[in-house]
């Protein structure tokens, strides 16, 4: 059974197909959120080529995310980062059986429409790319294809869900190989969930109203989330994950799964690392297996990584206040 908190049954993205005397619905919240549920306990890997996508699939990834450049290379290149080449997305979709996702810029409705037309399985409205709208995110209810969005706090997550996101991931700090920000974000979301749950349990509706105002979301979604004691959609960890130990640690904090960006394909032991991160995510609560996974990689081959304090560009702040 799926929580459908915040769902809009009048969404334009819901398509009724009544041909052939059959009543078919597409793009419902059950289908969008349900798709994300199928990815749970899995690893989604950033890829830029067909070859990388095939390595990801062979390593046991549940999905691949197609980008023009890996986040750490976006950081180095500077300039404007946009959605990936459609031809590459299509080539990748034709070479793997697992779902294919792609990123669009925050607020860029037409990059998203193009990705929907390209038939990607999920769209990531991502801070890794340069935002196209500083004040608005995409109204995702207009789409039949599900969206995933980044969040650093519960309020940000609920705002995205109210806009139609079917899945949430922590923002972390992309392209750094540094897991500290992802850890901070998931802990913050968990702490805030505990607080609203305890307010709900105490029956203090007035305080929930105050929180809804503070979060800039509807009272209903706050109440339903408080009652659940967790986000009403699947929540993955993302941003800076580079090793099996990173993945297992984030799973232990209650994440439903893992996105790995630059951590795999910017390392020098790609295949071993991809496999090892999948194993550590699956068996995160068995320390001996996580150790075996960690042993498959060589720390000398890990991406160098960046200290978040010295960064000029903090991608996580993009779209954060909207």
């Amino acid at each position: 059974m799926l929580p459908l908190s915040g769902e809009r049954i009048d969404a334009k993205g819901i398509i009724k197909d009544e041909s052939d005397s059959m009543n078919i619905l597409r793009g419902t919240s059950t289908l969008k959120r349900g798709f994300a549920h199928m990815l749970k306990n899995g690893v989604i890997m950033d890829v830029t080529t067909v070859e990388q996508a095939q390595i990801a699939e062979e390593a046991g990834a549940v999905s691949v995310m197609v980008l023009d450049k890996l986040p750490s290379d976006v950081r180095k290149a500077g300039g404007v980062a946009r959605t990936a080449s459609i031809r590459i997305i299509e080539d990748i979709a034709d070479s793997v059986t697992i779902p294919v996702m792609a990123k669009c810029r925050i607020g860029h409705v037409y990059e998203a429409k193009i990705l929907q037309e390209t038939n990607v399985d999920m769209i990531d409205e991502s801070e890794v790319l340069t935002p196209a709208d500083e004040t608005h995110h995409i109204w995702k209810w207009d789409f039949t294809t599900p969206f995933v969005n980044g969040a650093r706090s519960l309020s940000e997550a609920l705002r995205r869900i109210e806009e139609g996101a079917a899945m949430i991931r922590t923002k972390g700090e992309p392209g750094t190989g540094n897991v500290a920000e992802a850890v901070t974000h998931i802990k913050k979301v968990n702490d805030e969930l505990r607080i609203i749950k305890s307010i709900y349990d105490s029956g203090d509706n007035q305080d929930l109203v105050r929180i809804a105002r503070d979060f800039k979301v509807s009272y209903d979604i706050v109440e339903e989330t408080a009652k659940l004691g967790r986000l009403p959609v699947v929540n993955f960890a993302a941003g800076g994950i580079a090793t099996p130990a990173d993945a297992a640690y984030l799973m232990s904090l209650g994440c439903d799964g893992i996105f790995v960006g630059s951590g795999i394909f910017n390392a020098n032991d790609v295949k071993e690392r991809a496999r090892a991160i999948v194993l550590a995510t699956t068996f995160w609560n068995e320390s001996d297996k996580v150790k075996e996974a960690q042993k498959m990689i060589d720390e000398r081959q890990s991406m160098l990584g960046l200290d978040v304090k010295t960064l000029e560009l903090r991608m996580q702040e993009r779209g954060g206040s909207a």
């Binding site: 197909d17 059959m22 009543n23 078919i24 619905l25 597409r26 793009g27 419902t28 059950t30 289908l31 349900g34 798709f35 979709a93 779902p99 294919v100 929907q116 038939n119 990607v120 399985d121 999920m122 039949t144 294809t145 599900p146």
Partner: peptide
């Protein structure tokens, strides 16, 4: 088909 074609019936 792919996710966009996913359906309830």
């Amino acid at each position: 088909g792919r996710q966009k074609e996913s359906f309830e019936a």
